[in-house]
Amino acid sequence: MSQWISGDAARGIIGDGLWRQNAGLVQLLGLCPVLAVSSSVVNGVSLGLATALVTGLSSALIASVRHWVPNEIRNPVFILLIAALVTLVELLMRAGLPELYAVLGIFIPLITTNCIVLARAEAFASRNPVPHAALDGVMMGLGLTLVLAVLGGLRELFGKGTLLSGLELVLGESARGWVIHLIPESAHYQFLLAMLPPGAFIGLALLIAGKQWWEARPARTPAPAPLQGEQA
């Protein structure tokens, strides 16, 4: 049987990763980086993309070797493979984006123990073909990235009155002028509750509540048109 992923299977995996089984809003995995690094859009998206890269690569690698790894040593082998990929990402980030790496700090190597990476390795990658596992890993990582981006935007907006602050850490000093100041810098605006961990808890709770509210809405179906001869 061909291992290439079908359209229906791909849509199901994408929908699960981005919405139905979103790691940050439904499974509540990887909350440590979600709460600690989501102080701005740039920080959140940067860590989210790094996690998505590791999750996608590790899922594909684990799916490719799953038949040769005995069950007794499966978890240690998975952790070693994930740690090797995280080390590669960490070294690349340290060499190419040293200022961003300094901001994210310990949360880059901690991707090794991120529950999302380990959970997808155990629950999905170890039981499915490589294309399915790779797509699942990437989508789960991107689902987390979306949560980090939205939560980081909310906290940055209410905490500092800006959006995209720190963009120069990724794109260089020329991007410093791209920061959006919704409140003038001269106002020295700062709302500490939004910037500190309690603000992250509140923001995440609002996002979870918003998702549940959206899904709980009654389906709106158009009223049937009146039959010919009936009064409207």
Rank of each mutant, 00 (worst) to 15 (best):
W4S: 13
W4D: 03
I5K: 09
S6P: 13
G7F: 10
A9S: 11
G12K: 10
G12R: 14
D16R: 14
G17D: 00
L18T: 02
W19T: 00
R20W: 08
G24A: 11
L31T: 15
C32F: 14
V34K: 05
A36S: 15
V37W: 02
S38Y: 14
S38V: 05
V41A: 09
V41W: 10
N43V: 01
N43F: 01
G44L: 06
S46Y: 02
G48S: 11
G48V: 07
L49W: 02
T51N: 05
T51W: 03
T55S: 08
S58D: 03
S59G: 12
A60Y: 01
L61G: 13
L61Q: 04
S64C: 07
W68K: 13
E72G: 15
E72T: 15
N75L: 07
F78N: 11
I79S: 07
I79P: 03
L81W: 09
L81D: 08
I82N: 01
L85R: 02
T87N: 05
L91P: 03
L92A: 02
L92I: 04
M93R: 11
L97V: 00
P98T: 11
P98E: 10
E99N: 14
L100V: 09
Y101S: 10
Y101I: 00
V103P: 00
L104T: 05
G105L: 05
G105Y: 06
I106P: 03
I106T: 14
I108N: 03
I108C: 05
I111Y: 04
F124C: 05
V130K: 01
P131C: 00
A133C: 01
L135M: 02
G137W: 04
V138I: 13
V138L: 15
M139D: 04
M139H: 06
G141K: 03
L142K: 04
L144Q: 10
T145M: 09
A149T: 07
L154R: 14
L154D: 02
R155Q: 08
L157W: 05
K160H: 00
L163A: 15
L164I: 04
G166L: 05
E168N: 14
E168F: 12
L169G: 00
L171F: 15
G172L: 12
G172V: 07
E173K: 13
S174T: 10
R176W: 14
W178S: 13
I180N: 00
H181F: 15
L182N: 10
P184K: 10
S186G: 06
A187T: 10
H188G: 11
Y189H: 09
Q190H: 13
Q190M: 07
L193C: 06
A194G: 04
A194L: 12
M195H: 13
L196I: 09
P197C: 02
F201A: 06
A205N: 05
E215Q: 14
A216V: 02
A216Y: 03
R217V: 00
P218K: 11
P218D: 06
R220M: 06
P222S: 14
P222F: 12
A223P: 02
A223N: 08
P226A: 08
L227D: 09
L227M: 01
L227W: 07
L227C: 09
Q228W: 14
Q228M: 06
E230F: 10
Q231C: 11
A232F: 12
